[in-house]
Amino acid sequence: MAAERLARILALLAADDRPSGRRLCEVAAEATAMSGAGIALLTAGGAQASLGATDSVSSLIEDLQYTLGEGPCIDAQRLGTVIAEPNLAATSRWTAFSERALAGGAEAVFGFPIRLGAVALGALDLYRDQPGPLTDDQHADALVMADVAARFILSAQADAPPGDLDIDIATDTHLWGVVHQAAGMVSVQLDIPVADALVRIRAHAFGADRRITEIARDIVERRLSLDDDS
């Protein structure tokens, strides 16, 4: 059975010799019949990146997890296990994340660890615009898909120049670069460590209920200063 699932997923990917991160997400959503999918890379050092997302809702889910530090991918990676939240409207988990993801159009979210043996790379998130659990088949397909994603990511990175990202991964990956630029600026403005500046920016985005990239862009373009933040 596992071999059949794998064959089906590889057939979906077969058109691309080197599928993009977004294509991996599209195939994940298609194979599991979900509304959308995203892939988060989460390193042990705390760096977080999005390898791709199928649509604006998935992209919002990635963004919220980055801003709030909570959500299905974060838990899947941290706990090393599949996370299922079939009814976001009824859950008490991830209060901040759930409220905003619901408002964005996601009713159910699921996180699958992307790992190879003990090596954890990140997580695949799936969402649906209707509440309800995954069927056993969808669950099994998502597990195989997460495994396929792990192998694609690592085999791509195997071709990377020393010390850098593989060019395909670098092209696909959204690193919230502007947020880190803003953190560097705030760190100088307030004379605090960069990590603390990042926390301030996240808190500001949360408090203002705005996307973190918008806040960061305002800081970088010097339209917003966090000096007068409480």
């Binding site: 390193t43 090596v119 690592l154 990175q157 990956t173 630029q181 803003a182 560097g184 760190s187 403005q189």
Partner: peptide
């Protein structure tokens, strides 16, 4: 599994490099 660990470490290091480059740019810009 050993190869996977090395590759994942390289991936993580490369991601972290890109992050700190953005942070350094922000500090210099400011």
């Amino acid at each position: 599994a050993i190869d996977a660990r090395i590759l994942n470490d390289q991936l993580a290091a490369a991601l972290n490099s890109r992050v700190v480059i953005e942070q350094a740019k922000g500090k210099i810009a400011q």
